[in-house]
Write a protein that binds this DNA or RNA. Sequence first.
DNA 1: CAGTGGTCTAGACCACGAA
DNA 2: TCGTGGTCTAGACCACTGT
Lengths: 247, 247
Amino acid sequence: MTGTMPSRPHDIADDLRRQITTGRIQPGERLPSETVLAERYAVSTVTLRRALAALQGEGLVEKIHGKGNFVRRPHRKIMYVGGWGTLDPWTAAEPSLRVSVHSTTVPAHGHLTTLLKVPVGSPLAEFSCLSVEEETPHGLAHIYMPRDLAPAGVLDDNSACRQAFARFAVLGPPPATTRETVCTRPPTPDEASALRIGSASPVLSVTRVSTDFTGRVVEAALLTFPGDRVDAVFTIHRVIDERQAQG
Amino acid sequence: MTGTMPSRPHDIADDLRRQITTGRIQPGERLPSETVLAERYAVSTVTLRRALAALQGEGLVEKIHGKGNFVRRPHRKIMYVGGWGTLDPWTAAEPSLRVSVHSTTVPAHGHLTTLLKVPVGSPLAEFSCLSVEEETPHGLAHIYMPRDLAPAGVLDDNSACRQAFARFAVLGPPPATTRETVCTRPPTPDEASALRIGSASPVLSVTRVSTDFTGRVVEAALLTFPGDRVDAVFTIHRVIDERQAQG
DNA sequence: CAGTGGTCTAGACCACGAA
DNA sequence: TCGTGGTCTAGACCACTGT
């Protein structure tokens, strides 16, 4: 033991953080196993795991069950653009992202009946999307719409069609109103593992509900992003005309 | 042991959460010590502490070292409504909130010059607002506008005038575009102390920039909310007219 | 199957708060 | 001083991944 010998999680995290930020350990590289690291730092696995959890919270480390801990590529922030009316506007604006889509039909239940204003059990088309940028997950989407509004072909297993759909599709006639509610909260366990973030790292959650001119809800989208990877931007343009000038 | 016997942290948290939300344990009340609870649930203290940490993350439990774990008073979420064009739309919608405003003049520097598109050192009117709901801080705002656009009287020490301004003022002519950027991040030390939250609880940060029809930035607002206390909602209404129907 | 991370236990010790 | 929460250890066992 020639160098320093940190003992608490904070010190261990500091040591590993330095090795990562100085390039001593390269992005994408796998860290030694937790057992080995615990021995090296002369701590228990629990203590070492606390250090790794801290680094994961900072977005420096990505944990993959059964494979190892990996140094994450530093990422720039990506914009979620509100009001686009596409399934996942963030993807349309970022061609480097890849999206995998899985579609099924589910009966409406619980919160969904409220969001879509449909009775319990009515059939909904569900699209589960995971967008990935250079191997690291970037966004998670669960999109629901009344089954009869889902475009034909999208529900088939034509992946190319679904890809195009997920990126650019506008849902029939443009929605009359789009309401987007943004909050921050801890991820669910499923979200944490899908996005490979810690359960303490907050996510940015966007609930988007689109309504047509008759007041019918045509789409509800539940979008989840790692808080440190996306900003959401909403723009309102006021039109110049007589009515507004007088009102 | 007549009832259920949860074993994992999640189940224990569920059980305690139920007891809290049903009023079985009252707000302000102290929970049994961690040792006692660990025995009661037949788990180790580490496991029990994970359950309590989860409840703390939900804002249901407050831990005080050396004293115990206490049930916290839950607070409802308040909406931030995007695109209103007032100084603090969340307040306009919530009459129970009180706002304190402090106004000064500062020279533009750093990030502000970029946001407002003004040269370094040009005079800006700054409004620092803290909104409070029933003794607990609810939102923090730093609002900047070019000095010559600030309404007369607002910069004086007329607090009633500032109150009205902060709640309802529309800044001269309505802005042509309002762009709001939302992100989540840990609070700065100042924010954490002003909002009385932990440095680990993320905040919802809204940066609102309003531009008039000439392209001049008329206002930049930096808004900060405790993540567990506010949602932000943005609505877009599409106008029916020939141009949109054809496009 | 072997190797990895994920979870849990029992017990030790330290740090804080109130009597 | 005592009871509380805060941290850590050593070891066991489970769950996931790739061979």
